[in-house]
Each structure stands twice: as structure tokens, then as C-alpha cells.
Design a protein around this nucleic acid. Structure first.
Length: 304
DNA sequence: GGAATAACCTGGATGC
DNA sequence: TGCATCCAGGTTATTC
């Protein structure tokens, strides 16, 4: 599933191909891929054709391509991959992808013509054209952006733990006032972004913290450990190209990542914990699953 | 206002 | 073999 590392791999793949490119044509095949766009497919197409893409930026799981100003309006093409979305680079005229929803034909001054394909099996992902608004802290909007702006629909999303402008103090303060389970807080994109079910389970396993521990019950050292392990697991996954299951996530060239081989808890129900050998258990949590080691991650072991 | 839950969606796995 | 059901999970609207 596309979480921060997967989205960052896509962003990094898109950046050299689309920065400076001009959109020549847009084909919306399925308007369900525009659920975050305020307008019709035809309007989306008309508004995008002729625009020049400046760069590729990301905050958490949101990706956006800032566009040259048009009529005094500063805006971007925003993408969210949802659970199964893919952004693929293809040669012009390439055959339709399975579950292809939208295709952009772009022309780059150095690389020539290229197709940018948005494919999405489960249609939880979407594209949208959205206005850019100033960041409250005046810092760059996210990775790949040197401008202090984010799309309006990304305003409420917190910075991610790999963002140089991420505030450890604000994260600590948020945990200290929430009685919810720490895993729920890690998944709350308004507290910290980019973490999904896989990396929440992995970071909590590494930090030896039970996913249902109340956030405010964590000691200062435990919070430090969680945040440190979140960063370690995200950076390691990024280095390995992300986590792929059943080809649900691929980079812009359609290639899978390798991090699934490095998972210690997620998806390993019944298999021995790599640390103590006790079988990993799976429990229902927030309409999904939590995987943890019942020996290493005890509900009472929150101090230190 | 904060927290918890349901709904959205499709395809693969599983059970009968 | 074919059909029905379950499961995966990010975001948001709704409910408590």
C-alpha cells in the first residue's frame, strides 16, 4: 500500500521526467479518479492542457505537481494514490494499462513526449487541480518543493517525520494530550503524515510498544523511541524502494519494491518474532489489522 | 470538540 | 466449477 516511502519513490521518479514539461493532452477515462477535484472531467482536461509543470513535491502520502501561474492563479495538480493508485511513465501511444483512469500526454524540452498514466484498481486514489496556499510556518511545503506553499487540500496534513521542518516538540505534545491508542495517533495524518498500517506496525514492533497503549501513557523515552523507529523504518523502506504486495505498489516504471522482505511484524501472523521467537499475533483494529509480538510488546510495558 | 465508526471500492483468497 | 463471502486499508463524513 502506498505510504510515505512508496509515494516518495514515485515522486522521485516523476520529478526528472515532468519538471519543465508542458501538458499537451489529457484523457479522463473514469471520473471516479477525480473525487477530490471540484469540477467535471471535461473541465479538468481543459484546465490542464497547455500548462507547464514546474516540479514534483510531496507531503506525507500526498503528491503534487506545481503548475505555472495561469491568470494570476497559483495551483497544482494533486495526486493521492489511495490504496492501489499508480503513476506510471509510458511511451506516447502505449497500450492502456489495466485499471487506467487518467492519462496525460506531456512534452519535455529535453526528453520529448511522454505519457503519464494514473491507474487505480480500487479507485480510492484521485487527481485534482487545486490552489496553492501559503504554509503557516513559512517553510517549504514538502519534499521536492522549495516554495512555502501546499495545495489547499493538503493544508490539514501534518509534516512527515522525514521533513526537516517536522516539529518533534509538536508531535510529543500531541501524544501527551491524546488518550487514544498510540497506533491510532500514528495513523492520524493531522498529527504526523506518511505513516500507514504497515509502517505503524513495524515502528511499534521495533520500539517494543503495544499498538493499543494510550498515547498519553507513553514516557518521554518511549516517545523518543517511537519517533526514532518511525524514521528508521521509513528511511529503510525508502532505500529498498518501498513495500509491494501483489504488485499493488510499483514505481513509475512499474517495478516493485523490496521492503516486504524486511518486515518484522506486519503480515507475519503466526510466524516467529525475529527478536524472541514468540508467534506474531494479528488483531482487529480500526477496521483493519494490527500485527505485534505479545511478548516484546506488552500493554503494560510503556515506561522507559 | 474529540474520539470512534461506517462507507467508499475491487480483486484475490477462501469456503461451501 | 461456480457462487457467495471475507479481507485488504487511506480518507472523510457521520455518529456518539
Amino acid at each position: 500500500m502506498p505510504e510515505l516511502p512508496e509515494v516518495e519513490v514515485v515522486r522521485a521518479g516523476l520529478e526528472p521526467a515532468v519538471s519543465g514539461a508542458t501538458v499537451r493532452a489529457v484523457d479522463v477515462l473514469d471520473e471516479r479518479a477525480l473525487t477530490r477535484h471540484l469540477g467535471t472531467g471535461a473541465e479538468f482536461e481543459a484546465r490542464l492542457v497547455g500548462r507547464r509543470i514546474r516540479s514534483a513535491a510531496r507531503r506525507g502520502k500526498f503528491l503534487w505537481l506545481p503548475l505555472d501561474e495561469h491568470g494570476g492563479v497559483d495551483e497544482a495538480l494533486v495526486a493521492h494514490l489511495g490504496m492501489s493508485g499508480q503513476l506510471l511513465l509510458r511511451a506516447p501511444g502505449a497500450p492502456r494499462e489495466r485499471h487506467e483512469r487518467i492519462r496525460l500526454e506531456v512534452e519535455h524540452p529535453h526528453h520529448g513526449e511522454l505519457s503519464v498514466v494514473f491507474a487505480d484498481q480500487r479507485t480510492f486514489g484521485s487527481l485534482a487541480i487545486d490552489a496553492l496556499v501559503a504554509t503557516p510556518d513559512g517553510r517549504p511545503g514538502g519534499r521536492g518543493s522549495d516554495r512555502p506553499a501546499v495545495p489547499s487540500q493538503v493544508q490539514h496534513i501534518a509534516r512527515d517525520p522525514l521533513d526537516p521542518a517536522f516539529s518533534d516538540a509538536a508531535f510529543r505534545a500531541a501524544l501527551a494530550r491524546k488518550a487514544s491508542a498510540v497506533k491510532r495517533v500514528l495513523l492520524d495524518q493531522t498529527v504526523t503524515s506518511g505513516i500507514g498500517n504497515i509502517y505503524a506496525d513495524e515502528a511499534l514492533w521495533a520500539a517494543r510498544i503495544h499498538p493499543e497503549t494510550p498515547a498519553l501513557a507513553l514516557s518521554s523515552r518511549a516517545v523518543t523511541r517511537v519517533l526514532g523507529e518511525v524514521r528508521v523504518v521509513l528511511e529503510k523502506a525508502l532505500a529498498e524502494g518501498g513495500t509491494s504486495f501483489d504488485a499493488q505498489y510499483v514505481n513509475v516504471n512499474g517495478q516493485a519494491g523490496y521492503f516486504a522482505h524486511s518486515l518484522n511484524a506486519y503480515g507475519r501472523t503466526g510466524q516467529p518474532c525475529p527478536r524472541c521467537g514468540r508467534p506474531i499475533v494479528r488483531v482487529g483494529f480500526m477496521n483493519r489489522s494490527s500485527h505485534y509480538c505479545p511478548r516484546c510488546q506488552r500493554l503494560t510495558a510503556v515506561a522507559g
